[in-house]
Every structure is written in structure tokens, then in C-alpha cells.
Computed example of a mutant assay.
Amino acid sequence: MLRWLIALLILANLLMFAVARGMVGPLPAAGAREPHHLLQQVHPEALNTRPIHPEEAFDQPRVGGPAPAANVQSTPLGQ
């Protein structure tokens, strides 16, 4: 019984080796399966960058500076 199991596992490994090497045909991921995605790619030459002005950067963290104070209002609890 164990001999048949080992023989079956060896055959399965040989089959997967043949598939991985492309002996039974190309792998599905080898070709362009979705060519319409190539038309939707972002072209880096068309992107423009601009600096952020201080009024636009209110929620941006400042590296190396002090931590911003939290804008929290508190009132004493009533008992």
C-alpha cells in the first residue's frame, strides 16, 4: 500500500515539474491576458507635482518638529 502511495506522489511531482517547465504548453500567466489594462496605465510624464502650501498642509505631520496640540475642548463632569 505504501509503495503505491510513494509511486503516485513521484508521478504527481513529475507531472507538476513538466507543467512548471512549460512542457505541456505555456503557463496561463505567461501571456498578456488583459491587454486593456495596458491602455489604462498612468504615464509618468503626464503627472505634475506642486509644493504644498501651509494652509493646505494642516493635517500633514512634521518630521522632527514638536507634536501638534490636540484641538480638544473639555468640561468638568457633573455629579
Rank of each mutant, 00 (worst) to 15 (best):
M16P: 02
Q73V: 09
L8C: 11
N71Y: 04
H53D: 09
H37N: 12
V42K: 00
H53S: 10
F58G: 06
L27I: 03
L5Q: 08
A30Q: 11
V72I: 06
P76C: 00
Q40C: 00
P68N: 05
G78A: 06
H37C: 07
Q41H: 03
V72A: 00
Q73S: 07
L2C: 12
N71K: 03
A69G: 04
Q79M: 01
P26Y: 15
P35T: 01
G31Y: 12
I10T: 10
P68S: 03
Q79G: 02
H37Y: 10
W4S: 13
L9T: 13
G25E: 08
P35S: 03
A69P: 06
A32R: 06
V72H: 01
G22T: 11
T75K: 06
V19H: 10
A32D: 13
A18M: 12
I52G: 03
G64V: 05
L39V: 09
R21T: 15
A29L: 08
N48V: 15
N13I: 15
E56H: 00
G65E: 14
I6Y: 15
L14R: 03
V42P: 00
M23W: 15
Q73I: 04
P51E: 08
G22I: 09
F17Q: 12
V72Q: 01
G78N: 04
L11E: 08
A32T: 07
P68R: 05
A29R: 05
Q60V: 09
E34M: 05
P51I: 02
A46P: 03
V19P: 05
A57G: 04
P35G: 03
Q73L: 11
N13Q: 12
T75I: 01
A46V: 10
D59H: 06
R33N: 14
L8V: 15
L14M: 12
Q79V: 01
P61I: 07
E56G: 01
L39T: 08
R50G: 03
G31S: 13
F58C: 04
V72W: 02
V24Q: 14
T75C: 02
Q79T: 02
G65C: 09
L47E: 09
E55V: 02
L38P: 01
T49G: 07
A29I: 04
L2P: 08
L9Q: 09
P54R: 03
G25V: 00
V42H: 02
G22D: 13
L11H: 04
G25T: 00
L5W: 10
L14W: 11
Q41A: 07
A29Y: 11
S74T: 05
G25Y: 07
A46G: 10
A32G: 09
A67I: 11
T75E: 09
W4P: 04
N71V: 05
M16R: 05
Q40Y: 05
P44A: 04
L14E: 11
Q41N: 01
S74I: 04
R33A: 14
E45H: 09
L38D: 07
R3Y: 10
N13L: 15
V19N: 10
S74R: 03
Q60Y: 07
Q40P: 00
T75D: 06
